[in-house]
Amino acid sequence: MSASRDRILAAAQANKPDELPLPEVPLFGGDATAERFASVLAGIGGTVVWLEGLGSLVPTLQQLFPEARNTASPLFRGTVPVDAQTSTGILAEIDLAVLPGEIGVAENGAVWLPEANMLHRALPTITQHLALVLDHRRIVATMHQAYAQLPGTGGYGKFVAGPSKTADIEQSLVIGAHGARSLVVLLY
């Protein structure tokens, strides 16, 4: 191991204060309704669309994204098969990715998306449009409950809250920075 490692650890040990307690974090309460989730998501540029059931997924998508030519999804047969080995060039042409979300967070409109649901790690951000399919019973109130329910973070996973955005030019909000230009959460 490097000399710097030992020096840093020794200095941290020598300079740290006496041990202070680690607090227990309560789960807190909060509104865990789909209505709250939908209104918060709308406030950050996303949209909630209700599905009558998973059976109506494909027709709903056709209605929402009539222009989408290159689609990828583990939930139905998209036009582009994507897996972890798919080349960057093919990924770059995806118009719409439809991926299953695991947990929704009502307080901030975020959806937990684990690697296992992504087909390829880059897909959720490189696709022009992203649709996440979520069981409305998996909506929790806050991030505390969300993390408490996560079995782990796997190799890679993320909370996605709305479409990619930036306000780096004069604080003007622009939707569609580098990632998906739009985000729809399909609740069933």
Partner: peptide, 18 residues
């Protein structure tokens, strides 16, 4: 930071992709 309820992406990088 910005008054958003959360950042758009909260990404957990734990293991390298195969």
């Amino acid at each position: 930071a910005t008054g958003q309820p959360v950042t758009t992406y909260t990404s957990h990088f734990t293991k390298p992709a195969p």
